[in-house]
C-alpha cells in the first residue's frame, strides 16, 4: 500500500460564485467519493480561497518575510486536498475520477505519491 495526495486545483473565482444548488451538488459528489474511498481515505479538507493565503519566506539575513497571497500567483489555486491510501495508481485514478472538480472545466486533480519513509 502507498499513500497519495490528491490536490484539487481550480479557479477560486468559479468556486466562490457557485449557486447554492451547485454547491449542494458538489458536496454530494464529495460525499459519494468519501463513501467509495472508505477506509482508504486518510484525511482531506477544503481550503479557503488562495486570496487569503499568507506565504512565509526568510530574507538572506534570516528575517522572516510574509507575503500576502499564495506561493504560486496563478489564476488557478489549491482548493482542497485528500490523502488516500491505495495499492497502485490505477486504484487512485479510479477513485479520483469521481471528484466533481475533474469534470468542472476550470479545475483538475493532481495525484502525488507521498514519499515512503518506512
Amino acid at each position: 500500500m502507498a499513500k497519495y495526495m490528491l490536490l484539487i486545483f481550480g479557479d477560486a473565482a468559479a468556486w466562490e460564485t457557485l449557486t447554492p444548488a451547485e454547491r449542494q451538488a458538489l458536496e454530494a459528489a464529495h460525499a459519494d467519493f468519501r463513501a467509495a474511498a472508505g477506509p482508504r481515505l486518510r484525511g482531506g479538507e477544503e481550503l479557503e480561497s488562495p486570496s487569503v493565503a499568507t506565504t512565509l519566506r526568510a530574507r538572506v539575513d534570516g528575517e522572516l518575510l510574509l507575503t500576502d497571497g499564495p506561493f504560486l500567483e496563478t489564476k488557478e489555486g489549491l482548493g482542497g486536498f485528500y490523502l488516500l491510501e491505495a495499492g497502485d495508481l490505477d486504484e487512485v485514478v479510479k477513485l479520483a475520477g469521481m471528484l466533481p472538480e475533474v469534470r468542472a472545466g476550470h479545475s483538475g486533480v493532481e495525484i502525488r505519491p507521498v514519499v515512503d519513509h518506512g
Partner: peptide, 14 residues
C-alpha cells in the same frame, strides 16, 4: 516505481 503504476493488464472495462 514511485507512483506505483501497476504491472498488469487492464480490467475489461478499461
Amino acid at each position: 516505481a514511485t507512483a506505483r503504476i501497476p504491472y498488469r493488464s487492464p480490467a475489461p472495462e478499461d
